[in-house]
Design a protein around this nucleic acid. Structure first.
Lengths: 173, 173
DNA sequence: TAGGTTTGTTTCAAAGTTGAACCAAGATCC
DNA sequence: GGATCTTGGTTCAACTTTGAAACAAACCTA
């Protein structure tokens, strides 16, 4: 099958996507490193835990929600535990399991950091979006995320999708 | 100033954005690791070089286009050089500078890898987007990228933007 | 042209990520 | 009950990223 290179508008979208997502993650990481002394992912862990009714979650559940590997989470939680922001507890119902629980110190960090972080998320992303674009963004990425989670990576029979392009132009980063 | 938490639709968009971008990068990295034995960024370096008229670019220019730090690029190019895919050359006009040049072996890798990569970019992202959404994606991220490059992080006087929200609901990862 | 600053790049150590291997503890099947 | 398979988590070594510090060449500026 001859390669279906990206159409010019797809190429432009792809390049913009790559550039913007890198810049956004960078901005977030820099800011949270400043404010809370940890990378964005680590703050996300605390933030997610803080939303749970009991402020605790099983490792696997947490990893699943954050879309990261268990191994990556293990490493991160180990550090957060050293910092006293999170505590590991055995899971009562399943003795294999292990829970990550937000400590009071961890909660304090979240409370102290959240306002500045939201502000930064706005300054980095939302301030550059019209309300309509916020909706579009949600729609687009909700679909993409859903599609990529379940394992399958393409919808229906690819051949049936009518709006596919078969254009020239190589390369795409 | 009381914190302007994210409105529910912003929150949803943000969560979807975080999940999707992580999943996409993961898919790309996994695929290129398989096919070319290198992470996505490294392939991007080769791909960018392959587009240049002389197949070479100054380190700083390359870093700028890829939106990565010079230090990160140095490390990556060092490895690619070890693999024989890239060659460093002094810059004639500026003796401080250094050029990264794609070798023939590097070009071969790009040519061999590109088709599968494009296919993967489609399977990962574009296959889940309607043509209209491709346009929206480009528009959104072109704007965000432009805004974040230049240093300034918010447009005009923030107070003047009429579509800002001042809603309840804390947290945002 | 001798300072002093800026710019282009690399270096280094600390921190984070990856993926495969490992070690239980459940769950199944006979 | 005891093989066997699966699941939840951790470990380890190899690799990558980060950010500050170090260098060296280029660019002022008096």
């Amino acid at each position: 099958m001859t390669t279906r290179w990206l159409a010019p508008e797809e190429q432009r979208a792809w390049r913009a996507y790559l550039a913007a997502t890198l810049l956004v993650e960078d901005a977030l990481d820099r800011h949270l490193q400043q404010e809370a002394g940890m990378p964005h992912l680590y703050y996300s862990i605390l933030s997610r835990l803080s939303e749970e009714p009991e402020r605790r979650l099983r490792m696997t559940d947490l990893a699943e929600r954050l879309k990261i590997t268990r191994s990556r989470l293990t490493y991160a939680v180990t550090r957060l535990e050293k910092d006293g922001l999170v505590l590991r507890e055995g899971c009562p119902s399943d003795r294999r399991g292990s829970m990550a629980a937000l400590t009071d110190a961890g909660m304090t960090v979240v409370e102290r950091t959240a306002p500045g972080h939201v502000e930064n998320v706005r300054a980095t992303l939302f301030d550059h979006l019209a309300p309509e674009q916020v909706r579009q963004l949600e729609e687009i990425f909700t679909g993409v995320a859903r599609a990529l989670q379940s394992g399958a990576e393409a919808p229906g029979a690819p051949e049936d999708v009518p709006w596919r392009r078969r254009s020239p132009k190589p390369s795409c980063s």
